[in-house]
Amino acid sequence: MVKIHERKFVSADPEKCTGCQVCEYVCAMEKEGVFNPLKSRIRVVRLNQLINVSVTCRLCENPACVAACPRDALTQSEETGIILVDEDKCNGCGWCIEACDYGAITLHPESKVVFLCDLCQDKGKPQCVEWCPEEALDFVTSDVLAQKARIEAVKKLFQEALKATEST
């Protein structure tokens, strides 16, 4: 069994994300062989010109989507943390969609069952991360995200000292 802090998921850095939608194109192409953002497991949100970020499944602990499913169609893989959809049980009712705080789970336009990021298990690595031209997407654990945030915070605290070391 894999513990939560070892689970990797796809995270976008809003500082780097430019809203170019390459991740959407790649996802739909890898998964379904077509270009169509409605079939992408990752979606870009542009609030305005300055605020862009892609959003996909974050492999939550105690995922709300799983808990919300009245038909037990959703389960979380103990090994990887990926949310698995039993397509025979799912009837597209949408309780899970409503439960997800991030809009990471959606209804497939054709099969009418829900679908979401599976980290491109068959390819070994999420393809959106491979393709992102800005390297804005990371395949990371929440621990690593926390480490990064911590380092950034400390860098800001010690800006002056850092400048001094850089100039020497």
Binding site: T18, G19, C20, Q21, V22, R46, Q49, N52, E134
Partner: peptide, 19 residues
Amino acid sequence: VAKIIGCSSCAMRCEHVCV
């Protein structure tokens, strides 16, 4: 210039958004 953003499918991104 506050941020440089990109169009759909572009891998270069040129749009210099100024504030």
